[in-house]
Design a protein around this nucleic acid. Structure first.
Length: 480
RNA sequence: GGCGGCGUAGCCAAGUGGCUAAGGCAGAGGUCUGCAAAACCUUUAUUCCCGGGUUCGAGUCCCGGCGCCGCCUCCA
């Protein structure tokens, strides 16, 4: 398996520090607002990486943090006249709700920054003792000039940074790029006791403290959005390696942005869609919307920018429909053992292997999905030659097994198409029972060759979002 | 100004030196069907932004343009 490492800007063979085990840390969110699709993409990318590594047989130790103390949280909390802690708690819960609906699996540990203040203080003290940090008026800064490799990850050079950067001048800092490890408290802000007086941690230190606490001083994979490369991850490297003298991380993985009309989606630009909105605007049930969104996001490689659009999302849904069409055919097949039975195992093997090869190449999900699509076509063809019930089940199981890596194709086709008979359905949505009644009428009409009546019923159901498919035996099936 | 990335069919999107440039969506024709839908078959880039170069051979490497984007300040 090869992984693109931001550190070296090339794909490298992947070998974990401990054979059979992978330790991975991913920068989560700052909890002060609802998550947008960009957050969802990042969570999804690392969810799939985690799933694939588990699929490969690795034991995963996966940490994804929450930043629950920070300027933006404090500001927002002030505005809403609530406590900073309460605000971040609320948005952490919202994040977990959204990501849960998207099928993002929980991490092994999901630490919150404020629960690791002692570890952060200990780390900062270590840096002060070792001469990498200095104290000014209750603030503690990391002195970047004392750590020559600073900027290695992003490829930035301190002297060149000075030329163009608009860095606010803080006379107390020894270098404009020195960053805060500890900030002395202002009145009304959350604060903790420290050797330097009451204060709160700087942003970067939390990730070093929490990752080391759970994964050790050196671990395998550290991930996040590409906007975190500089300064956040460069700062993490500086703090961590200055404190331990050990290599901090082996593989740095960064996901590309979600854009809107080719422009970065971000809170500051105001051009973002929240995950919540996607679900609310969707005419489909949560599970189906979630899978369409996953498919859409995974159809682009994780390092490429991805332009979000409603059209793209519904195209993805159409593509997933084709899989569930096949699953229904497989499920309803009553064919006896046929020629396809003999050919199927080799086909499943071949595409399973192609799928793994795609994923082994830097988690190439678009290529992996393409293999699933070709397999779908192949199985459809084999059905023409006759596939026994058992063979059909084997085929379905292969899609389920590979699809699990991407968090796709796990539903029963009835759930996907919304044909589960639900006694209660939202206003304006026809229930499965009602559809069944109309369908029986239509079947009767067709039997009488009353095609006018049959077509009326079909048109009526179509206007309600129901598509009918007639089977050769005169019966019909339907989907939303 | 510094650093980095991208430009492949109507749209989305793989492919980073070598069989006929994956796959999806949309479109066209056909088989099937009462008509549809789904499925299947055929079809949609002699060509990968432009111009040079390296090579037996380049979408893929190098140089130079053009266009777009990101980071350098909080940001997934």
């Amino acid at each position: 398996m090869r992984i693109y490492n931001t550190q070296t800007r090339q794909k490298e063979p992947f070998e974990p520090l401990t054979p059979g085990q992978v330790r991975m840390y991913v920068c989560g969110i700052t909890a002060y607002d609802l998550s947008h699709i960009g957050h969802a993409r990042s969570a999804l990318v690392f969810d799939v990486i985690r799933r694939y590594l588990e699929f490969k047989g690795y034991r995963m130790l996966f940490v994804r943090n929450f930043t629950d103390v920070d300027d933006k949280i404090i500001k927002r909390a002030e505005k809403e006249s609530v406590s900073a802690g309460g605000l971040s708690e609320r948005y952490i819960a919202e994040y977990q709700k959204d990501m849960g609906r998207l099928g993002i699996l929980a991490a092994t540990v999901e630490p919150k920054a404020t629960e690791y203040i002692p570890q952060m203080i200990a780390l900062i003290e270590r840096l002060v003792v070792r001469g990498f940090a200095y104290v000014v008026d209750g603030d503690v800064y990391f002195e970047v000039r004392r750590f020559p490799p600073y900027g290695r990850l992003s490829g930035k050079n301190l002297d060149e940074l000075l030329a163009g950067a608009r860095v606010e001048v803080d006379e107390r800092k020894r270098d404009p790029h020195d960053f805060a490890l500890w900030k002395s408290t202002k009145p009304g802000e959350p604060s903790w006791e420290s050797p330097w007086g009451p204060g709160r941690p700087g942003w970067h230190i939390e990730c070093s403290a929490m990752s080391m606490e759970h994964l050790g001083e050196s671990f395998d994979i550290h991930g996040g959005g590409e906007d975190l490369i500089f300064p956040h991850h460069d700062c993490e490297i500086a703090q961590s390696e200055a404190a331990t003298d050990k290599p901090f991380v082996r593989y740095w993985i960064h996901n590309g942005f979600v854009t809107i009309n080719q422009e970065k989606m971000s809170k500051s630009l105001g051009n973002f869609f929240t995950v919540r909105e996607i679900f609310e605007k969707s005419p489909y049930p949560v599970q189906r919307t979630a899978e369409a969104l996953r498919y859409f996001l995974l159809a682009t490689h994780y390092r490429s920018p991805l332009d979000f659009s409603d059209d793209g999302l519904w195209e993805a849904k159409r593509a997933v429909d084709r899989f569930y069409d096949l699953f229904q055919r497989l499920d309803e097949s009553t064919a006896p053992k046929g020629q396809g039975d003999g050919l199927l195992p080799a086909v499943l093997d071949r595409f399973g292997e192609a799928f793994r090869q795609a994923m082994d190449d830097d988690f190439n999900t678009p290529a992996a999905i393409a293999q699933l699509q070709v397999l779908r076509a192949e199985v459809n063809k084999l059905m023409e030659t006759g596939l026994s019930k058992q063979a059909c089940e084997n085929a379905r199981e292969e899609f389920r097994s590979l699809g699990r890596v991407l968090g796709l194709l796990q539903l029963d086709w009835r759930e996907w198409f919304g044909t589960v008979v639900q006694p209660q359905t939202a206003d304006g949505v026809i229930t499965g029972e009602e559809v069944t009644v109309r369908l029986v009428e239509r079947t009767e009409a067709r039997r009488r060759k009353d095609f006018k009546k049959a077509d009326e019923i079909r048109t009526e159901l179509e206007s309600l979002g129901i598509t009918i498919e007639d089977r050769p035996d005169g019966t019909s099936r339907w989907k939303r």
